[in-house]
């Protein structure tokens, strides 16, 4: 080695090696204690944060989509319900109207009949009344007539004779 006389860049050199080793090891120790772990940790944390955020965003999107779907479903159900309720209401209305009409008709007929019956009764009563009055009147008239005719005894006798004749003839 001594005789070869290599260029200085190829010659082993204790001093250079020593300083290189010392400087490198000190730098390595300091940086591996205070330098890189802090940086790496922070970069990892941010990476994790970004990943989490992305995942959250995706989940939120999915949730939003499901909520939208749910909303649409609810809307559709509501529309169906509405249609059904309307249909029911219409049917109920029709039924009520029809019922009312029938009832009204029946009621009318019943009233009419009652009225007719009443009228009949009233008529008969009136007739009976009239008849009895007519009888009364005729009796009274007859009474008056007879009274008038039979004012003197002669006439009374005459009349009675006449009647007796009639009865005897018979």
């Amino acid at each position: 080695m001594e005789s070869m006389n290599l260029p200085s860049i190829l010659t082993p050199d204790l001093g250079l090696f020593f300083w290189m080793a010392l400087a490198f090891i000190i730098v390595l120790l300091i940086l591996s204690k205070f330098g890189f772990p802090v940086i790496v940790k922070m970069i990892d944390e941010r990476q994790k944060f970004i990943n989490d955020s992305l995942m959250n965003a995706r989940e939120a999107n999915e949730k939003l989509a499901s909520i939208q779907a749910e909303g649409e479903k609810i809307l559709r159900n509501a529309r169906e319900e509405q249609a059904k309720i309307l249909k029911d209401a219409m049917a109920t209305r029709d039924a009520i109207v029809k019922d009312a009409q029938q009832k009204a008709i029946a009621e009318g007929e019943k009233l009419l009949e009652e009225a007719k019956a009443q009228i009949l009764v009233e008529k008969e009563n009136a007739l009976r009344d009239i008849r009895s009055q007519v009888a009364d009147l005729s009796i009274r008239v007859a009474e008056q007539l007879i009274m008038e005719q039979l004012k003197d005894d002669y006439k009374q006798e005459n009349y009675i004779n006449k009647i007796l004749d009639k009865v005897e003839v018979k």
Binding site: L14, G15, W19, F24, V27, I30, F36, I39
Partner: peptide, 30 residues
């Protein structure tokens, strides 16, 4: 036995300081 601060050694020390300055200041930022 020669432990002189030669041109190469001084540049190694300079490089070491640069490394320390860069990464310690970075770590401080974080």
């Amino acid at each position: 036995i020669d432990l002189s601060i030669t041109k190469d050694v001084s540049q190694i020390l300079l490089a070491s300081f640069i490394l320390l300055a860069i990464f310690l200041s970075m770590a401080r930022w974080y």
